[in-house]
């Protein structure tokens, strides 16, 4: 059964500065939706508005047509990977997997570099390994949707390829909204891509649309 996350009419202002203006987008389970935009265009703000962490002056966030104002209280609906490390460094990897009710074996199958490391504290991991763990728990934990803010940060090329394969598999179970500056990787795995520019979303289809909208120079 398909599930839908839709947002429209999102307006967000910080004082006189207009960040988001009548933003619309749609996500669905079984698909990866990409969100591109230059720095400061409001990508992370948009994700926080969807979660309910940021209050927009006007918005409508709907899951399967039902309005949800504080989605951050509903991890069964949506999970969020922020652009910074959010897992407390003092926790052991196996403790994190337990908290999210995830299987150690499946984690090690996807990312063999963690074999024999599950007893380590998160703070002992490298930046890339820490990011892999964070991506894994958010993408794998049961929920209808997951929002990933710059998941490829800190990852080396091999890890990026692995994460792309992982997300493409996991999308069969949930819907993803992903933003990242590594747009070519994002284009490769996304089923649809929005470009956030001047506070508005523009649905794009190809790299050339991104060039037309002034996001890239090809």
């Amino acid at each position: 059964m398909k599930h839908y996350l839709e947002a429209d009419g999102i307006n967000l202002n910080f004082g006189l500065r207009n960040i988001l203006s009548d933003v619309y987008f749609k996500c669905e389970t079984g698909k990866i939706t990409g969100l591109l935009g230059r720095n400061g265009q409001g990508k992370s703000c948009l994700m926080n508005v969807i979660l309910g962490n940021l209050k927009a002056s006007n918005n409508s966030i709907r899951f399967d047509g039902r309005t949800v104002t504080n989605a951050f209280k509903r991890p069964d609906l949506i999970l969020y990977l922020p652009q910074f490390n959010f897992i407390p460094g003092s926790l052991k990897i196996k403790q994190v997997l337990d908290d999210f009710k995830l299987e150690k074996n499946d984690f090690e199958n996807w990312f063999p570099e963690f074999i024999t490391k599950v007893d380590l504290k998160v703070e002992k991991l490298s930046g890339g390994q820490r990011r892999l763990l964070e991506i894994y728990v958010i993408a794998k934990a049961p929920s209808l949707f997951a929002m990933l803010d710059e998941p490829f940060t800190h990852l080396h090329p091999f890890q990026i390829e692995k994460v792309k394969e992982f997300l493409s598999t996991e999308k069969n179970l949930k819907g993803f909204l992903i933003t990242d500056h590594l747009f070519e990787h994002l284009l490769e795995i996304s089923d649809s891509v929005y470009l956030l520019k001047d506070g508005k979303t523009h649905l794009t289809k190809t790299k050339f649309d991104l060039e037309t909208l002034g996001y890239v120079n090809l």
Partner: peptide
């Protein structure tokens, strides 16, 4: 603040 996202993702506001 950053760690609170961990608890939020686990349903603890």
């Amino acid at each position: 603040k950053k760690q609170l996202y961990y608890y939020q993702n686990l349903g603890v506001t």
